[in-house]
Amino acid sequence: MSVGPPVLRLSGVSKAYPANGGQSVQALRNVSLEVGRREFVSLVGPSGCGKSTLLGLIAGLEEPTDGAIEIATEADGTPGQVAYMPQRDLLLPWRSLLDNATLGAEVGGGDRAAARTRARSLLPSFGLEGFADALPHTLSGGMRQRAALLRTVLLERDILLLDEPFGALDALTRAALQEWLLEIWERLEAAVLFVTHDVEEALWLSDRVYVMTRRPGSIQLDLPVGLPRPRTRAVRGTPAFAALKQRLLDALLADTA
């Protein structure tokens, strides 16, 4: 699906944290990757391989120790150019769902009234109709994740960074939300960088999957998926899917051994 120059390019990105005794802990080493316009890219890797750290760097929350992060929209790497959805839903408990969803417009000084109108119009497709004024604690886990994604989408960026958005959900809710996410994404004009440790989830959603090594994290495999879209659940049963899954698992398990 990638056409033209990438919207996000990481070249040789490393991140080290100072640790006790003057030494430093290397979290990421020499990570290079690209995300094309409207491309869905997944990042899989073992727990603690630095996937979340990488997203934090791209979101501008931290500076890389080394390397460059180029985002097509603007070149200076300041926060606010990508839409970042952290692992936890982080809905502010004192705000209604609608106020949470429009937090970005409020922080960015955008048109709040317009943001609220757009948020309301999106509620049905996010399965949140009738919950605009609900406080987060009254929502189910799946609804909270959808609300967090709505908040991310409403930032109106070209790149969405999603950090294990379905990690904490039960298997059934998770499967339902994966299908729903595909639907939403196919209507959006945005590229997605999706972090997960679920190989099937990564394959089924993505145009391309990057596999990371254990800490210090680096890219060990760049796997174009090439399955036709729009994808249905049935794709998961095909031999092509199984072969891709085998390649991903081989790469992941070889690193673990």
């Binding site: 300041t78 606010g80 970042y84 952290p86 982080l90 970005g104 922080v107 960015g108």
Partner: peptide, 18 residues
């Protein structure tokens, strides 16, 4: 205050005051 929530607002381009 939850550091992740603070990071979220910073990732949206929020200032210290925000």
């Amino acid at each position: 205050a939850d550091p992740d929530m603070q990071a979220l607002v910073r990732s949206m381009g929020g200032s210290r005051r925000q």
